[in-house]
Amino acid sequence: MVNTSVKIGKLTLRNPVMTGSGTFGFGSEMSEALDLNALGACVVKSTSREPRLGNPTPRIVETSSGILNAIGLQNGGIDNFINEKLPFLREYDVPIIVNLVGYEVADYVYLAERLTEAGGVHALEINISCPNVKHGCDFAVDPKLTFELITALRKATDLTLITKLSPNVTDVVSVGRAAADAGSDALSLINTLLGTAIDIRKRKFRLANVTGGLSGPAIKPVALRMVWQVHQALPNIPLVGMGGIVTAHDAIEFLLAGATAIAVGTATFINPTAAIDVAAGIEKFLEEQGIEDVNELIGAVTR
């Protein structure tokens, strides 16, 4: 019997596998396909203060080994989440992590207070880095703004805070350090990489939003490098690694690079059970390798 459980802030996950925000709906959509209780944690779609309609279509286009998305954070707003989505999630014995998005510090604080009060939410993932909305990257590219935001959130809630970092920055470590210094319990990385694609016959951009966030196996090497970099610089803060994870092999690479947990995102679109398949694959690997505790893998890569 191997130990697969890991700790992220105050949370104990039964295995290191989370879902990627925006790829798993609000859990209910996927609950027929897989047992949510078999996940390490369930991260639901970004929730904002007011409902958002998101961007025009096309919102997702296929690229080499990946997709570009420009959904634009469509969601029903916090009231809808608390009243319509959360009761379903409370029935499960799995940590529920809500991804928060706002325009300014006050929005994030409001959301954190509402979700803390609501009960049934175990951690907040702070989306400071959505590339598809105006001002979506303001916090993520500036360590000072990140520090101010996370400081305010730390005062507003005792829930575990996970700050989601953008790869679209010059120095990911400095933003991660700012979040850690401000009291973020963990960091998740990476969000999508800003990109675009063009229809050469129509001479038009393929996304209505022109640019979008690249995800899928195409970005895995970049994500893995960034996880390793941040872990080297900030070895004491737990990382949730993500970016192109499809298989247990991919996930184990992230653990070795320094991630304590990982998220399966885009892969769910192709294989509805991808997240629990990855969890089972990690366990199988531990057994095969005679490794008693998954924590032994974390950051264990050597040159």
Partner: peptide, 15 residues
């Protein structure tokens, strides 16, 4: 019919 990347209601692209 619109493009449906996931078909399961989670990707929010086929609106």
């Amino acid at each position: 019919e619109v493009g449906m990347p996931c078909g399961m209601g989670v990707c929010m692209a086929c609106v």
